[in-house]
């Protein structure tokens, strides 16, 4: 599993690997929002956590369709599938690689970008905490979607249509916890739910992703 993880990380940071694209996308969305809603710092501070969450979610979506598509195009996928590594572990490795190249950088970038949206002192901590807890779920759910659409023409568009509804609970609990935390309210419940979704997705979705990969490889 580490072999696949190493290779995917190495591929993503080599030229043309697309590392940093989602980060740049994240930055641009956050910069565009004030142009659309106006520069009042109070409004920006209020909607800031939500904006950052939605932007992070969309940035995660951006790189999903490359996850299996590249290995499918060059024929590596059937060769990986016949290796000793079960497809469930392949899916998990892909999800971890995706998180390390998108979810983690996004989480780290969220705090500096929060400055642009005039976030208040406590909001930064909550934002980073909820993103750190929630982005793994986004990566695993997205990996399932990518496994579902591998090999389809125009799979990227379909992938968004399939994955976005699945993102709803994660987004709601994540953004809600960030908002409540920022406003000094009790955020225990959404935080626990968010952690629960991440843990459940990590435990179960690799099996679903492995199953659909097997179907798609037939």
């Amino acid at each position: 599993m580490t072999a696949l993880l190493h290779r995917d990380l190495r591929l993503s940071i080599r030229a043309g690997g697309g590392f940093g694209l989602s980060l740049a996308f994240f930055l641009i969305v956050v910069v565009l929002v004030p142009f659309a809603v106006g520069p009042e710092s109070e409004i920006l501070a209020r909607i800031g956590p939500g904006i950052l969450w939605v932007a992070a979610l969309l940035a995660t979506l951006l790189s999903l369709d490359r996850q299996f598509a590249l290995d499918h195009e060059d024929g590596a996928l059937p060769l990986i599938a016949t290796s000793p590594l079960p497809l469930e572990a392949v899916a998990l490795a892909k999800a971890v690689a995706h998180w390390l190249t998108t979810g983690l950088p996004l989480t780290l970038a969220a705090a500096p970008l929060g400055v642009l949206l005039n976030l208040e002192g406590t909001a930064y901590g909550w934002l980073v905490l909820t993103l750190a807890l929630g982005t793994p779920a986004l990566s695993v759910i997205g990996t399932f979607g990518a496994a579902l659409t591998v090999g389809l023409r125009r799979g990227g568009l379909l992938l968004s249509l399939l994955v976005l509804p699945l993102y709803v609970p994660t987004l709601i609990f994540g953004a809600e916890a960030a908002r409540r935390g920022a406003e000094g309210m009790d955020a225990t419940t959404p935080l626990l739910m968010l952690a629960g979704i991440t843990a459940g997705s990590l435990a179960l979705l690799p099996f679903a992703a492995g199953a659909v990969l097997r179907i798609n490889l037939r």
Binding site: F144, L148, P165, V168, P169, I172, F173, M193, A208, A211
Partner: peptide, 20 residues
């Protein structure tokens, strides 16, 4: 498989939306 996974997430969404 999508229907199975979707059902779980639909129920989760229902609770999430209620909470929200």
């Amino acid at each position: 498989v999508l229907c199975l996974v979707g059902s779980v997430f639909a129920i989760l969404s229902r609770y999430a939306v209620n909470f929200w």
